[in-house]
């Protein structure tokens, strides 16, 4: 299994803060494309963190990963 986390407007768009998914060996880029299709999202400007570290699009997911979708941040 992998865990997906959504924040800010993405959480509202997906309707969930957290989704569990069956693990498949895909990259972050492929996962983003899948979610864009399934939920009608635009993830072009959304960063991704795997297990609380920013990750590159080409990174291959591992079983048990927690993948967070991080819209442009607005703290401070």
């Amino acid at each position: 299994m992998i865990t997906l986390l959504f924040f800010s407007y993405l959480k509202e768009a997906v309707g969930n803060e957290q989704i569990k998914m069956e693990y498949t060996p895909i990259t972050i880029k492929q996962l983003k494309q899948q979610l864009e299709t399934d939920y009608g999202l635009d993830l072009q400007h959304v960063m991704v963190a795997v297990n609380e570290e920013y990750a590159q699009e080409g990174q291959l997911l591992q079983p048990g990963d927690t993948i967070a979708f991080i819209p442009p941040v607005s703290g401070g």
Partner: peptide, 28 residues
């Protein structure tokens, strides 16, 4: 990873990149 949601007089809006200096064209 912190986000603010503005509650205006006339609605709400999640604020994106307030610096407007980062477009992350590659998504990362």
């Amino acid at each position: 990873p912190i986000w603010k949601k503005e509650h205006w007089e006339d609605g709400t809006e999640w604020v994106g990149n307030q610096l407007e200096t980062k477009a992350y064209p590659t998504g990362k």
